[in-house]
Amino acid sequence: MTKKRILITGAAGFLGSHLCNRFISEGYHVLAMDNLITGQLENIEHLFGKENFEFYNHDVSKFVHVSNDLDYILHFASPASPIDYLKIPIQTLKVGSLGTHNLLGLAKDKQARILVASTSEVYGDPLVSPQDEDYWGNVNPVGPRGVYDEAKRFQEAITMAYHTYHKLDTRIARIFNTYGPKMRLFDGRALPTFVGQALMQEDITIFGNGSQTRSFCYVDDQIEGLFKLLHTDYHLPINIGNPDEMTIEELAKEILHLTNSRSKIVYKNLPVDDPKQRRPSISRAQEILNWEPKVSRKEGLEKTIAYFETLPLEKLINAEKTHFKES
């Protein structure tokens, strides 16, 4: 029996590397693609040498060529953290526009099904909570976060245009905050930064007063939702996330407790356009995908912290230096 062939872009990133693992374990032939601008090759090095795994160092904002047939494409190439997309705004816009256009064209040529990774950031700083898929969002297109928000909104629009005009088989996942092993520490997002600071016994830095909320989904649950979406006959956007909402201050205190850290919490000014609320409505995912998160926040945080505790202290220090250099 011929193996199904799947192209995964952003394959060396956090979610991309977990997707590579999942599809390898499911018996697929995985073509992994990443230009390593934010991805880390060590995330997928364990797959090198496997007969059903190939890696290509390539920027999908340029023409994408793949030999032979393709059954599926997962487009996960994009900077996803504030530090990244504020540092490389043009590349962020290009991968969401030109990159998505290139991959939709490839899917059309190969008659492949394509799933694009959108984000809860399409909702901007929402005026409703929880956010469901019918909410159009509250986005500042010319603010500092606009390069990421609008890249993803355009990505959804062109994907729907290809579905409508070319009858392309498409899927759109709106991914909410996800965490777990292989995240980059100090990447500008609260959870991995708090964990890194707690493990190094440094001050936990909260932006604003900590009352802004987020909802965190463990990576295993996220990957299961994405796997189900790819294999479900539904083309409109679907939220995939955990509706268990908490404040950023509550998150910091929980991480301090779980790490037995002596770190103190300090407060800094809130960045421009930082969302005050983030909580998905997952009724569509429950109904269409028969999916909902299974891993509790405590269990997920314990697994995530345990992973980072296995890293040498030197790696934590280097991650922090990179953070301060880039921010």
Rank of each mutant, 00 (worst) to 15 (best):
A117I: 07
K268Y: 00
L98H: 11
V30P: 03
V66G: 03
H65N: 10
I114N: 06
E314H: 00
H58P: 01
I317K: 07
K110G: 13
G13A: 09
H231L: 13
I175C: 11
D34I: 10
L98D: 14
I206Q: 00
R189W: 13
S283N: 12
F23L: 00
P293W: 10
A319F: 10
E320N: 08
Y218C: 02
P192K: 12
R113Y: 14
V195K: 06
I238K: 04
V219D: 08
G96P: 04
L36G: 07
I114Q: 08
D109R: 14
S129P: 03
D34A: 10
N177T: 14
N260Q: 00
L31K: 08
Q131E: 15
H257C: 02
K182M: 15
G99D: 03
S296M: 09
Y165E: 14
F176K: 02
L127I: 12
V266T: 10
K294R: 13
P126D: 04
A173P: 13
D34G: 08
E287R: 12
H163C: 14
D233Y: 11
G196P: 09
M1H: 13
Y179V: 11
H323G: 02
K228T: 01
D84F: 07
L41N: 07
K294P: 05
Y307Q: 07
L104F: 14
G300D: 10
P126A: 12
V272F: 09
F53N: 04
I317E: 10
Q212W: 02
E299G: 04
Y72S: 07
F48W: 09
C20V: 13
